[in-house]
């Protein structure tokens, strides 16, 4: 292509007249903060991990269970808690490994892949926590229903009804609450990472398309 080769010839001659940056200015730049997306993903990820870890640690169910005389269930919560901590530690380790692997000296495709992988780990962590939160909610509803004395009236009504409408209503409300809860988080993440990673995702797709 003739025009491109003309451009190449001019390009090679290095006749660009760029305003030159002095050594002093470069020194100053070295001490400025980076605003790369990797840094933002790291910051957001740490906040996410801290938030969800705090939620699962603070969420102390023992006392409440005693209050409503459901002590028998405490042991199950203890087991779940133990597994939960193991999972949290595993995720933190994975995220750390992924993060230190990110290097600007890798090929463009590899770099993008590594960034997306680091983010995915955090995303899985968030989904895991959302899943746990949903399960906790379901268990919470079930325990309330079985042990809370205030539920006696409702249970009595459900036991005596013929068409089970009230039962379905109760289950429906419970499900709706969980769906709304998960949906809100899903939208937040979509916005957060959607904005941050739009460019990277587009470029990664483009690179993958070339290499099909």
């Amino acid at each position: 292509m003739e025009e491109l080769d003309l451009l190449k010839k001019a390009w090679q001659k290095d006749t660009h007249k760029f305003e030159q940056v002095s050594e002093g200015e470069i020194y100053k730049m070295l001490h400025k903060k980076s605003s790369s997306i990797v840094k933002w993903i790291l910051i957001i990820s740490i906040v996410e991990v801290l938030f969800w870890t705090a939620v699962s640690v603070i969420w102390n169910t023992d006392e409440y269970m005693r209050k409503i005389h459901a002590e028998n269930t405490i042991i199950y919560f203890k087991v779940v808690n133990f597994i939960n901590y193991a999972v949290i530690l595993w995720f933190i380790y994975r995220f750390y490994k992924n993060y230190i692997k990110i290097s600007t000296t890798a090929s463009t495709k590899q770099l993008m892949y590594d960034i997306l992988k680091a983010r995915k780990t955090v995303q899985y962590y968030v989904w895991y926590n959302l899943g746990m939160a949903a399960l906790t909610l379901i268990a919470g509803f079930a325990i309330q229903f079985l042990f809370n004395p205030k539920m006696e009236l409702l249970k009595d009504k459900i036991a005596h009804e013929q068409d089970h409408i009230l039962l379905f209503k109760t289950l429906g409300i419970m499900l709706l609450a969980i769906v709304i809860f998960v949906f809100i988080f899903w939208v937040i993440y979509l916005l957060l990472y959607g904005i941050l990673l739009r460019k990277l995702n587009t470029n990664y797709k483009e690179l993958k398309k070339i290499d099909l």
Binding site: W11, S35, S36, I37, T104, T108, K199, L200
Partner: peptide, 30 residues
């Protein structure tokens, strides 16, 4: 490699742009 990777991957602001000649450097370019 590092420079291209930064421009394509790490740089947060959108680099997608329309061709423009308003850029002062353009006049002297090449």
């Amino acid at each position: 490699r590092v420079a291209l990777n930064t421009a394509i991957t790490l740089y947060r602001k959108s680099t997608r742009n329309v061709a423009t000649t308003s850029y002062e450097g353009q006049k002297h370019f090449l």
